[in-house]
Amino acid sequence: MEQKFSFAQIDVFTAVPYKGNPLAVVRGADALSTEQMVAFANWTNLSETAFLLQPTSIAADYRVRIFTPTTELPFAGHPTLGACHAWLAAGGTPQGTEIVQQCEIGLIRIRRKDERLAFAAPPTTLEEIDHATRAQVAASLRVDPTAILAIQRVSQKPGWIAALFASRAQVLALQPDFAAMGPLKVGAVAPSPEGETDFEVRGFVPDLGIGEDPVTGSLNAGLARWLIGTGRAPSHYTAAQGTAMGRAGRIYLEQEGTDFWVGGDCVTCITGDVVI
């Protein structure tokens, strides 16, 4: 039986509508089955669609399930900020000073600072990349392997591999071969001293039903751990992403103690009801 649900489309990691990464949010989605969520996420054809539900953990303020057009994700960055923005806009009130989101990976802490949301990145382990994977990354990015200054796996879930380049121009010029990339999730990053931000980032995820992600919280979280941890970035920096797609994504990264905070602005672009 069809039901009506409250709906919003949020532009995440931007203060300028239609210049970030859009997220579809369905509120009060507890009555929906997994199959209905999958079908709706496939229909929106956005990089992610989030469904807000009642939490099952007493420590959480709300629960969210996150879907790409083809699969469910245990965690993702821009849906975390966008879902929180939608929850607050609908009148959500946190139990404590921080907002606590429950998702498949566990509990995620979110804070508001100067009206900007930021999440504490889930813990992860950085891993070295073997020679064969490095060669596959270079081939999939259509670059000589020597153009990649350093490479690292920066997250286990969703499994980002990050390649460091010398210049912003190199990153923006990339024209990936998605067939060669296969199931890999590849992020490209370079310092951007001549730009408005400190780093330029691109994220490629062909196996999730999209080629390039406009702005990616989970990738930038892993990059922050790597870049700050190796002294390639200061403890506070800003990254741009989406430039090659005509977007103006801005991600604000900050290390405080053992926490890595990933922040960005959110803008509500569409509100209404959907029938599912």
Rank of each mutant, 00 (worst) to 15 (best):
E2G: 09
E2K: 07
E2T: 09
S6D: 14
S6M: 12
S6V: 09
Q9D: 06
D11V: 02
V12A: 10
F13I: 03
A15C: 10
V16D: 12
P17V: 14
P17E: 10
Y18I: 02
A24R: 01
A24N: 05
V25Q: 03
V26G: 06
R27L: 15
G28F: 00
L32I: 08
A39Y: 05
F40T: 04
N42F: 03
W43R: 11
L46K: 02
S47A: 15
T49C: 10
A50T: 06
A50Q: 01
L52P: 00
Q54A: 12
S57E: 15
S57I: 03
A59S: 15
A60V: 07
Y62L: 06
R63Y: 14
R63V: 06
R65S: 12
R65Y: 09
T68S: 14
G77Q: 01
P79C: 07
T80L: 07
G82A: 09
H85G: 02
A86N: 01
A89V: 07
A90C: 08
G92M: 02
P94E: 06
G96A: 12
Q102L: 09
C103H: 07
C103L: 02
E104A: 15
I105S: 09
G106D: 05
G106F: 13
L107I: 04
I110T: 00
D114K: 13
D114Q: 15
R116W: 13
R116E: 14
A118G: 08
F119W: 08
F119Y: 14
A121C: 11
P122M: 06
P122H: 05
L126I: 11
E127V: 15
E127Q: 15
A132D: 12
A135S: 14
A135M: 13
A135N: 13
V137M: 04
V137P: 00
S140A: 13
R142G: 05
V143K: 07
V143E: 06
V154I: 14
V154L: 03
S155E: 05
S155T: 14
W160P: 00
A162S: 15
A163P: 05
S167L: 08
R168G: 10
V171Y: 07
A173T: 06
A173W: 11
L174T: 00
P176G: 08
F178M: 10
A180I: 07
M181R: 04
L184P: 02
K185F: 08
G187K: 09
G187M: 10
A188P: 04
A190K: 05
P191K: 12
G195V: 04
E196D: 14
E196M: 13
D198L: 07
V201I: 12
V201Y: 02
D207G: 11
L208F: 11
G209P: 08
I210V: 14
G211Q: 13
E212G: 05
D213Q: 12
P214M: 05
V215N: 01
S218V: 00
L223Y: 00
A224E: 00
R225Y: 14
G231A: 10
R232I: 04
A239E: 01
A239V: 10
G242K: 04
G242V: 05
G242P: 00
I251A: 06
Y252D: 08
L253E: 04
T258K: 15
D259K: 12
V262L: 09
G263D: 03
G264S: 08
G264H: 04
D265W: 13
C266R: 01
C266K: 06
C266A: 11
T268Y: 02
I270N: 08
D273E: 15
V275Q: 10
V275G: 07
